[in-house]
């Protein structure tokens, strides 16, 4: 089961998104969060993605993201030191980490 989340992954919606994600990860066996609908993200949103990943680690079930994210969001993550890391076996699934790009 995939979890769709809100279009604005920003501070205004941070609380509700956090609650929904936490509930979804806890109840899902293979949590996959679809970011296709995300149009806007800020630092609080990025923190939520990292926190979701950590939640999965804590519960022993890896949390992955999926969906085509917009170029704006990709650039915002990249410009601020974050990057999308794809799951080796599946190009569609990725996680968000500190950027590993070489300078």
């Amino acid at each position: 089961m995939k979890k769709d989340i809100e279009a604005n992954f920003t501070i205004e919606n941070a609380k509700s998104i956090a609650g929904a994600l936490n509930k979804y990860i806890k109840t899902s066996d293979n949590p996959v969060i679809d970011l296709s609908v995300v149009k806007k993200i800020d630092l609080s949103g990025i923190q939520l993605l990292i926190a979701a990943h950590k939640t999965g680690e804590k519960l022993g079930k890896p949390v992955y993201f999926t969906g085509n994210i917009t170029k704006n969001i990709y650039d915002l993550l990249n410009d601020n030191g974050f990057s999308l890391v794809h799951l080796e076996s599946d190009e569609k699934l990725f996680t968000v980490r500190r950027s590993s790009r070489e300078f």
């Binding site: 501070i11 941070a14 609380k15 998104i17 956090a18 994600l21 936490n22 990860i25 630092l43 609080s44 990025i46 923190q47 939520l48 990292i50 926190a51 979701a52 950590k54 939640t55 680690e57 804590k58 410009d79 601020n80 030191g81 974050f82 980490r97 500190r98 950027s99 300078f103």
Partner: peptide, 25 residues
């Protein structure tokens, strides 16, 4: 420039206060 966000203070969702900033650089 090189931006290195420090992520180890971001807790998991159950402990997180989503309106707080946990990231430093």
């Amino acid at each position: 420039h090189l931006f290195l966000p420090k992520l180890d203070e971001i807790p998991d969702l159950s402990e997180m206060e989503p309106e707080k900033c946990y990231t430093s650089w």
